[in-house]
Design a protein around this nucleic acid. Structure first.
Lengths: 217, 217
DNA sequence: TAGATTGTTAATCGATTAACAATC
DNA sequence: TAGATTGTTAATCGATTAACAATC
């Protein structure tokens, strides 16, 4: 029987690796693999066996000496650690190109979330159907929040409105942001969960890598 | 005069922080700030002054004792390090919801890239206008690549086609991937630049954080 | 039992922070 | 010149890797 929650504080480096484990384990299961040793998994993921064992042992002894790890068990365990079995009530703010694509593209339930409302300030977009939901005007957000108590806000608005909006959303009870804007929410709201998807930063890393690899050729 | 390229190998931790510096410096400039000390900047960015000085000194002495850093100079320096002045030729593969949104939403030139072609395998999408470009059929990609030599591929295809596609693209000369699929390109193509935008991973981090913060309340 | 492989402790490595002399 | 603040070296901290005894 695995002893859960061994360490009281898990380092951020470990946590950030969990979704990747979860993905690889899922893929292996789909291929019909039943068990795997830390060494074999390490090889597949380009990690060290040591790191895998250390990482997993932060949460409990999921393996068995001489056998390795049972993948089904492991997937369940990591899934429950990541909270994918939950359903955080989530709203999308900003139904532009990107917002719509996110709403339509993501299978929220697979990641422990549930999209329950979409808001925009543009009158033209109100009433549009996006991912099975009607876009609502932002002016109705406050009462919607009071009634439905969403915890997560997806921010897909222009940078100029992001700061003021984030302030209001926190006031209205939002506990976490999935932030697609350039605005750095963490700086002003220290006690709120923020996951930044700075697409521009990510793209710049590519131009950095390319401009510096050319030098070596 | 700043002495460029001081360290021969820059650690990844430093590089990943550069885009954030670049954003903050840009914002400060827009506010009319001319110079800043490492201490003040650290405060604004929730970092330590030490770290900022260490980071910047990997690339050269951009500051001046007793004065601090000139923001305009610094922005130019970091921009040129990041390669935003270049224009990596970029193609988008997959003109679904997400692909279209990325093409329309990103100002590629701001990040040192240039979108020169969009491909899809769905006959229905061919000819559609996305971000000023006509969607082309993937069957024409090879000759397009030979002629135009794109370096970067944005991958917005279903996971099932990602692996085979990545293999072909590498064969056709793609040097970097901006990867929006679940497939881990790095594992099979070690010498290619890969920047992953695993939106699912990012969303899971939110459900993790929320499910664990509730325990503390 | 013998072999395999974990869980865990100890050693190493790298990144961050602190301190301070150099200097604008 | 005196004050401010950098660039840089040294100290600390944390994360990764190696090693091995425990055990299935």
């Amino acid at each position: 029987m695995p002893k859960e929650t061994k360490k009281s504080v898990i380092s951020n480096s470990v946590i950030k690796r969990l979704p990747r484990y979860y993905r690889f384990i899922g893929a292996l299961l789909r291929q019909g693999v039943v068990r795997i040793s830390s060494e074999k998994l390490a090889e597949k993921m380009s990690l060290t066996a040591s790191q895998i064992r250390q990482d997993l042992n932060c949460f409990g002894g999921f393996g068995q000496q001489g056998y390795g790890y049972n993948l089904e068990e492991l997937k369940k365990a990591i899934g429950s650690i990541l909270g994918v079995t939950g359903h955080c009530k989530t709203v999308l703010i900003g139904a532009g190109n990107l917002g719509k694509a996110i709403a339509a593209h993501m299978d929220f339930s697979e990641y422990g979330c549930e999209l329950i409302g979409i808001f925009d300030s543009d009158e033209e977009k109100i009433g549009e159907n996006v991912a099975g939901l009607e876009v609502m005007h932002i002016s109705g957000a406050k009462s919607f929040f009071e009634k439905n108590k969403p915890q997560v806000a997806i921010l897909c608005v222009p940078e100029t409105s992001a700061q003021a909006l984030a302030d209001r959303l926190v006031l209205w009870g939002i506990q976490a942001f999935w932030n697609f804007t350039h605005y750095d929410i963490t700086v002003s709201h220290k006690n709120v969960v923020v996951e930044n998807v700075h697409l521009g930063d990510s793209l710049m890393m590519i131009s950095y890598a390319l401009s510096h690899s050319e030098e070596n050729e």
